[in-house]
Design a protein around this nucleic acid. Structure first.
Lengths: 193, 193
DNA sequence: TCATTAGGAATGATTGTTCATTCCGAATAA
DNA sequence: TTATTCGGAATGAACAATCATTCCTAATGA
């Protein structure tokens, strides 16, 4: 295996193990030797790729957030009407959460953490700002309720938190019907229809 | 001061300090000497009231959850119609969150934690079951959407999580108008009107 | 061969917890 | 009243365990 690819896969194994452990046991509740064991590398190897445990959690946070934010934007275009835009946004979020429960739990467990650096905080607010921007555009057209966009966004984003915890526990299958019902409920909450 | 009252206030000081620290730095991120310092007691004193750090977090969790669940029920009666019941439930939750942001953050930071014992888990599901029960009664009358009550409850409870984080950061004042707008939005989400 | 990477034992710092000691107010005695 | 005794509560230094991090040797591969 070429050196570069091997390094990437080793670094990815560490990040993957860290995500799994951080999302279930929290940052401070997870030890470096534990991450090493799950990633099947030596504890010292982790320090070849990350300068510290804090550096590791921050790089992971930025990766997860940027990945999530990117997923939110799939298929969205400027000329779409508000309802269609919302449809895509909600389903992009929904599918991401269902396919990456640990990542979503990790976000919501750490978004207020003191060990997050500026870059991490920026990635987080970028995600939040993106949702708020979609809200503002809909509000300008009079199709969404007039309220601080962050609160409107909370009506859409918030329910995903307890729901993701439920799916994490029960490991149950999310039906398409459920996604549709929640999309409609959320739309009723924020639209002026 | 009588012995009994003195003990209670000392124990309460420890619980109060623990809530403050746990809700901002998490359980594993908080040290016992730190709790002792904030509570203005010796580190050893904590072990006079709690057999371990885990015992402390569990007693705190049960207290907070039972207090929250009790607040949810204030003013609710069986003969109320669904909309009125929802009005009370939402505002009870809203007022509790606004007046006890740390407690609410603490709940949502720890509800999945591995160190919670059976009693804590029971207090948590009791709260959740109570909300779900209110939902079910409304659904039986055909006034609320037909969906697993836990998901309907998530539409009401979920938004409070990012909102509480926002109020925790900005320390901003919650207006009555905001509460009303969110109550109505949430009602649109879950009702069959 | 030799430069680079991996591994995991060693290290020093930090933690939850203990325990010998101090403190303090009530009870007792004078 | 006032001095003395007493017992549980409080303390924080000390302990053993555990942690993040370092470092040195082995393995790798070019």
């Amino acid at each position: 295996m070429p050196e570069t690819i091997k390094n990437i896969s080793k670094k990815d194994a560490i990040l993957k193990a860290a995500l799994q452990l951080f999302s279930h046991r929290s940052f401070d509740g997870t030890t470096i030797p534990e991450i090493a064991r799950v990633a099947k590398v030596g504890a010292g190897t982790i320090y070849r790729y990350f300068i510290s445990k804090e550096d590791l959690v921050n790089e992971l946070f930025v990766r997860v957030l940027d990945d999530f934010t990117e997923h939110l934007q799939v298929g969205l275009h400027g000329q779409m009407d508000t309802r269609t835009r919302f449809h895509h946004l909600f389903n992009n979020a929904w599918n991401y959460v269902m396919n990456n429960v640990e990542a979503f739990l990790f976000i919501n467990l750490n978004d207020e953490a003191t060990y997050l650096n500026d870059r991490s905080r920026k990635s987080f607010s970028r995600m939040w700002d993106y949702i708020a921007e979609m809200v503002e555009q809909g509000a300008d057209k009079g199709e969404l309720i007039k309220l601080d966009p962050k609160f409107v966004a909370s009506l859409v984003y918030g329910p995903l938190i307890p729901i993701s915890k439920r799916f994490n526990n029960d490991n149950r299958q999310a039906s398409q019907a459920l996604a549709k019902a929640l999309e409609e409920a959320t739309w009723r909450a924020i639209s002026t229809d």
